[in-house]
Each structure stands twice: as C-alpha cells, then as structure tokens.
Design a protein around this nucleic acid. Structure first.
Lengths: 187, 187
DNA sequence: GTCTATACATTGATAGAC
DNA sequence: GTCTATCAATGTATAGAC
C-alpha cells in the first residue's frame, strides 16, 4: 500500500500530539505504548517505526509542548495581555483540564526521572520559553520565578480534593505572581 | 511464629517510610508492589496484609511525609531559621536527593491522578503544613505562595540537565521567595 | 507504513502453608 | 504476620505479512 508524501511526518506528529495529551492526563509512566499508539490511531507495531522506545517519545512530547507554550508567550504584546495569560494559567479551567494545559505541572517530575537526552531537550526548550517570557517582563530571574511559581501552584491545586482549597492556592499564587511582576521592570 | 506486640504497626511504618523513599526517587507509578515491599524487607504477599492496594499506600505515604514536613516547619523559631530553611529547600542537595527530600515536587502530580481519598488526605495534610508555615510568616496567602514557588522550582530544576541551569532556577526562586516574605508581615 | 501475532518480563493481586 | 507459589492482565518490544 502506498501513502502520500509527508504521511510519515504527519503520523509522527499525531503520536506526539495525541500521545502528549494522554500523558498529560494519565501520566507518562501509566500510559502504555499500546495506549499511546491507539490514541494516535495506530498500533504499537507502527509506534516503533517512529520512536526507538517510550523515552524518545517523552523527549519529543516535551519539545513540542514547550514550543507551543513558547509561541503562546511570544504572542503577548501588552502588559494587559500578560496579566490575562497569568490569570488563564492560574485558572480552575487549567487545573481541571490537564490534557489541554501546560506540560510542566504534569510531566516535569517524570522528565527528572528520564534519560539525560530527555532532560537536555527539556532544558533547551525551557530556556527558550524563559527567554521569550523574560523579554516581555524585562527580567529573566523574575520570568523564571513567575514560571516556577505558576507551575507549582497548578500542580499542587490538582492534588487537592475540594474546589475551595484549589481556588485558595490559585489565588495566593496569582497575588504573589502579580507582586513579582510589579517589583520587576514591568510597569 | 509469634511476633512481639507492636510488630505489625512497626512493619507498616517501615512500608510507608521505605516505600515513600523509593516512590520519591523512582516515581510512584513506576514502583511495583514487589519493589515497594522489598525495600521494606518483605514480599508483596505481606504487603497486602497492611494495605488493600497501591492507592492506599500512596495516601499513607503522603500523610506521613507531610507530617514530617509540618514538624520541620514547626521547629522554626526565628526569621533567620526561616530563611535558612528556605535556602535548604532551594538547594542543590535537595534537588539531587529526592528520596530524602520533600514529597511535594516528586509525588504531587501523581496524587492529582489518584483517588478522591488520596486527594482528601493530601488536602488535610497540606492544610496543616500551610497553617504552621503561615504562623511563622504571618500571612497564609504568602505562606501558600512561597510553598508552591519552592515546590515548582525544585521540580523544574530536577528536569534540567546542566548544573548551571539548575542553579539559575533555584537562585531565581530564592530571590522571589525572599521578596515575598519581606512584603508579607515578616520583619 | 501499518498491521497482526507474539515473545517475554513485569504488573497488581490472591491462596494457602507455616 | 510473613512466606512461597501462582494467577490473569498488562508492560515493552520485535518479526514478518501485506
């Protein structure tokens, strides 16, 4: 059977995209190769034509996800938009929907247990995200701190049971992140 | 065979303690019941005399670990000690040794994917930790924000490959956490 | 390029001996 | 209370047909 040109790249991209969504929701360690392949519309046999193993997929997921995050930050032009993005990150909608949210609160801990190659890919991609954010904020240290603050808050909020407790954690983080931004070069 | 009184409780405690250390290092999902039992010096058969399943152990680990964290914070008496604890949390030693470190950066994401019971136990235990910290800092929102800031920074740092990048993330978080403390009621 | 089929290890969990 | 032995199910990964 013949396939149109670019089909291979497209299939790989689907594995990364859909597999990434599954991993963000269920956890990477808990997602089997069969599952990761199935959500992308194929079987595990086809999976291994694209990746040598699960580890390689994790690196690809992290790279693709952080590229998306970077693009989202790059689109920010005004301080108003920056504060809006902050609120969206620290929202109940984000907490409730990990599969369409940021990769950091869900998979960063698993990257830490991954291969050196995966951590290298993570480091490069995160540096770009931080750079873009630093450009908008005016201070790289503040950008990094705001990022880790938001990531920690969303992850902790997801571990909580009651809506009230989740909202409290998000509100505290929002207040603190805003204070950090004001203390930085941001007007 | 007969066992001295309290043997059962002691065995269970060992399962929670040693199993917790393993889960913090390797991840809970990646740790099998056989492994969790083995590091506590027993087999999986014995494991099920103490817990109905893996989920129950996770709840017990989270409770015990956060009780330890709470006790550590409770021992803080001066502002100097508070800043010292902050530096210790945001240290390379902590980043490099998850098995003897805080449970939050390693297992919070997995708690979020756990049962409602596990999340309930997590919420109660974390509330106590936050309360104790709020008492020392003077503001509960600041206490929560500092906590999530530190947790996020340590988790992200562990995902990075180079020592330089890790140090940069920790330094940014340290600076921001100190600023938050100064802006709060802390002298 | 993707499939089916399968190898082989490990998973969570149970039963029964001691 | 803990052990050994074992289960069915699922894990990662490979081989070969189409």
């Amino acid at each position: 059977m013949r396939y149109p040109p670019g089909h291979r790249a497209e299939t790989r991209a689907r594995l990364v995209r859909e597999g990434g969504a599954l991993a963000k929701r269920e956890g990477f360690a808990r997602s089997g190769v069969d599952d990761l392949a199935r959500v992308a519309g194929m079987t595990s046999g086809a999976f291994y034509r694209h990746f040598a193993g699960k580890d390689e997929l994790l690196a690809a997921i992290v790279e693709a996800e952080l590229a998306t995050t970077r693009a989202r930050f790059a689109a920010i032009e005004t301080n108003e938009q920056l504060l809006f993005a902050l609120d969206a990150y620290l929202s109940m909608t984000h907490v409730r929907n990990p599969e369409i949210g940021c990769v950091l609160p869900t998979l960063a801990a698993e990257v830490g247990r991954g291969s050196a190659e995966t951590r290298g890919a993570f480091e490069r991609a995160l540096a770009e995200v931080t750079d873009v954010l630093a450009e908008k904020i005016g201070d790289r240290a503040v950008a990094s701190a705001v990022l880790t603050q938001c990531v920690g808050a969303v992850m902790i909020a997801r571990g909580l049971e009651s809506e009230a407790a989740r909202r409290a954690v998000l509100a505290s983080a929002r207040k603190s992140a805003r204070a950090l931004l004001l203390a930085g070069n941001l007007a």
